[in-house]
């Protein structure tokens, strides 16, 4: 059994995070970015806030630099990075989908990988190409075998996605329960529950069969997956009615608006739950909260930058912007 690090072991990391939190963008900072005239003005404001590396970069490069800074900082401050695998494994499952599809379609995966995954995607690709499943980590081995055989037998890309997505949800749920930290458990639970809700709504809209819906969803603690599946077969209203009886009743309004409104609700909910971590002097909680806050910040800046590039109105973006951690 894996020995869990003691709570005090994160004292150094949390102390560094206390300083880093003072550099996070606030709601007021986002409002200034949103009010900026164009992309150049946004980039200038971000550079003034310490973003980038003092050189001129394109927006996507700046975001990549900031993402790298985040994970470099985490790697420097946390001894055992595997504690944070629950935040990254979904990148591995994405990379697995890419590998399976590229191998079966004989195409190159260049540019399709997601970085910051637990496993090196190239290694994943080589192992899968040579069918050496033993080279894959345990949590990817079975989904890889199943997805490869499904796609080779049926050429059904959607079935391949379904197998891998479900394996991802089940593994994240498992990671949440493996750890006794409340914050990690909550993050993993919300990850699985929100995925189930999205599957239910999309399935209701596209009139999927019950068997397909059941195969797609993963069990979690806050939803009755069987009831949700049956509601999805009935239609969108039935899904919303069922959700009204669960602890996600506050999300029903957002779901009625759009899927992106629901995603915003999930991120805002997570931010609200994480906020008390700002006062926690020890433990993994403040580290997890900081990573999530930084990812939300990057998401918000990406949205603002693409809005400026595409000349979208301020109000369109404002309703999509997440609440900030500070």
């Amino acid at each position: 059994m894996k020995k869990k690090p003691k709570q005090q072991e994160y004292t150094y990391a949390v102390a560094r995070i206390r300083f880093k939190e003072t550099k996070l963008l606030s709601d007021a900072d986002l409002a200034s970015l949103l009010a900026a005239k164009d992309t150049d003005a946004v980039m200038r404001l971000l550079r003034d806030k310490g973003w980038g590396d003092n050189a001129d970069h394109r927006p996507e490069e700046l975001l990549a630099i900031e993402e790298k800074k985040l994970w470099d900082f985490v790697a420097e401050s946390v001894d055992d990075l595997s504690t944070l695998n629950f935040l990254l494994v979904h990148h591995d499952f994405h990379n697995l989908k890419v590998a399976v599809k590229c191998i079966t379609r004989d195409s190159k995966p260049d540019g399709l990988w997601i970085g910051n995954a637990v496993e090196d995607p190239e290694k994943l690709y080589r192992a899968l190409k040579s069918r050496e499943y033993g080279e894959l980590p345990d949590y990817l081995r079975e989904p890889a075998k199943e997805a490869m055989s499904a796609i080779l037998q049926t050429s059904d890309g959607q079935l391949c996605d379904l197998i891998i997505d479900k394996a991802c949800m089940e593994y994240v749920y498992h990671l949440g329960h493996e750890d006794d930290n409340e914050i990690i458990r909550l993050y993993c639970e919300l990850f699985v529950a929100s995925s189930d809700i999205k599957i239910a709504l999309r399935s209701a809209r596209t009139h999927k069969k019950l068997d397909f819906i059941r195969r797609s969803m993963a069990a979690c603690d806050t939803l009755d997956v069987e009831k949700l599946s049956l509601a999805a077969v009935e239609g969108e209203d039935a899904v919303l009615t069922y959700l009204g009886t669960t602890e996600y009743r506050a999300a029903v309004d957002a779901l009625g608006v759009s899927m992106s409104a629901f995603e915003k609700w999930c991120d805002d909910y997570l931010t609200a739950v994480m906020k008390p971590q700002k006062w926690e002097p020890f433990g993994i909680g403040p580290i997890v909260a900081y990573i999530i806050a930084r990812q939300n910040e990057l998401k918000a800046v990406r949205m603002i930058l693409s809005a400026k590039v595409n000349n979208l109105s301020e109000s369109t973006i404002k309703e999509r912007l997440r609440s900030m951690y500070v």
Binding site: T11, A13, A15, R16, R18, F19, S77
Partner: peptide, 14 residues
Amino acid sequence: GKAGVAAAGVLSEQ
């Protein structure tokens, strides 16, 4: 020792 670890974390930033 414990307070020193936290202090070192802060000093690495400030």
